[in-house]
Amino acid sequence: MSSTETVPAAPSLPADVRVGVIGVGQMGADHVERIARRIKGARVSVVTDYFREKAEEIAAGIPGCRVADGPEELIAAEDVDAVLIASPGAFHKDQAIACIAAGKPVLCEKPLAMNPQDAYAVVEAEKAAGRPLVSLGFMRRFDREYAELKDAIDSGELGQISIINCKHRNARTLPGFVDAMMVYDSAVHEIDAIHYFLDEPIVAVQAVLPVPGPRADEGQHDPMILLLRTASGRIVTDELYVNTDSGYEVRTEVLGSRGIATIGQEIARVTTQKPGGAWGGAIPADFRPRFVDAYDAEVQAWIAAVADGSLVAERSATAWDGYLAAAACEAAEAALTTEGFVPVTVLSRP
């Protein structure tokens, strides 16, 4: 879009915001169910998916919902006020820019794009539009524990922050989940969380890889550790272990001059975890039970922002946050095959 083109004005919204959902796989189907059953002030009006049969199956369970032939038709539809993108990440850039061109607010699941260049194109398109339209689905910003930790950091309760330790563990991954995917699908959440907590960018990343494990021949070092350095010199460790054969858990520990705060310990009361789930407690099988409340809060805040005209909720990740995350992930991927710290290259904000 050129700087001389204008974006259509936001239409007057009906009582319920009519949401179109692009992609109704695992995440998209969850969002459809969420909006239909638990979110106030919204309804799902249109869905689309590469597999039309899946879209028709989802639409059949939602009163008043229909199926569009593709993303372009859904974005342009008169009965769609706002768009939720849950398609594969490779399509997010073009779909987000199409929403911006149509003047429709969009909640895009991460990533914003598959590389920083494409993410920056979305930032530029939004800048040309003259108003914020893009919210990015980093749901941890809406988690109660993350919000409390953010408040503790901002208030100075913990004093000067020097080190943050993160842990990100999954039960298992599918074949083909290589090191780069550990960065872009897993570590990206910690990367955004650091931007959220500290309000400063990550400027360098180093990867620390273990001795070859059982899936090394598949291109996966598991577990691995990423070291991230922020603009003010703080150090973040991110331990990634995505095939624990136990369950899903994330933890964050912040070391400050006046105290130490840790979140994610509600499921960490068990002292012994063994492959196959042999322990004295329970851990969620995947991320959805852990963050269901955060997803609900994120979508509800987005709908409220659309309805009141602010378009992007105050706590939400923005297109710029998505660009910063993409730039840090690019450096982290390079660090997998580079000795020492790899600098994060960031362009000026438009």
Rank of each mutant, 00 (worst) to 15 (best):
I191M: 12
L311R: 14
I263W: 01
Y323F: 06
V188H: 05
I75L: 05
G256I: 00
L324V: 08
S155K: 09
P201L: 02
I267A: 08
L112C: 04
F142W: 01
P350L: 04
G259C: 02
K93N: 10
R234K: 07
G25W: 04
A125N: 12
V21R: 10
A278R: 15
G322K: 02
Y323I: 02
I161L: 04
P14V: 10
R34Q: 07
L136S: 07
L149E: 01
E109N: 06
I75N: 02
A152R: 12
I194V: 11
Y295W: 13
L133N: 00
A90G: 13
V80N: 05
V306S: 08
T6L: 14
D245W: 07
L347H: 11
S3I: 13
L13E: 08
D151A: 15
A102F: 12
A77V: 01
S2D: 15
A10R: 07
P71V: 03
D143M: 13
A76N: 04
T6G: 11
W302S: 06
M182H: 13
A313W: 02
P111A: 14
I161H: 01
G259I: 06
R34G: 05
A42L: 05
G233A: 09
D49E: 12
I58T: 14
G259D: 03
T345Y: 03
P275Y: 12
H92Y: 07
A55Y: 02
V67P: 13
A60D: 05
Q160I: 09
A331F: 06
E33S: 14
E53L: 11
L324T: 08
I163Q: 14
S246G: 09
K104H: 13
G247H: 00
V80Q: 05
C329E: 05
G213S: 07
L74T: 03
V24S: 07
A187S: 07
F177K: 05
E218R: 03
E298Y: 10
R229M: 13
L198D: 02
F287V: 15
L255F: 13
R290E: 13
C329R: 01
K127N: 15
I100E: 13
A294R: 04
I35M: 02
G137F: 04
V83W: 00
P71A: 10
R315E: 03
E190G: 06
S2F: 12
Y50K: 13
G64R: 03
S310P: 03
T252L: 12
P116Q: 10
A332T: 01
M114T: 11
A86R: 05
R38E: 15
I161Y: 00
P116D: 11
A90M: 15
E57F: 04
D222E: 11
V21K: 09
Y146R: 10
R131P: 09
I39F: 05
A297F: 10
T230Q: 05
G277S: 03
E314Q: 14
D151K: 02
V270Q: 09
P284G: 02
A60Q: 11
Q160A: 14
K93F: 10
I75P: 01
A42I: 07
A119Y: 09
W279H: 08
L227I: 12
F291M: 09
S232C: 11
T230C: 06
V122A: 10
E157V: 03
R18Q: 04
V211Q: 15
Q220W: 06
T244L: 06
E5L: 10
V44G: 07
P350W: 00
A82P: 03
A294C: 08
S232W: 04
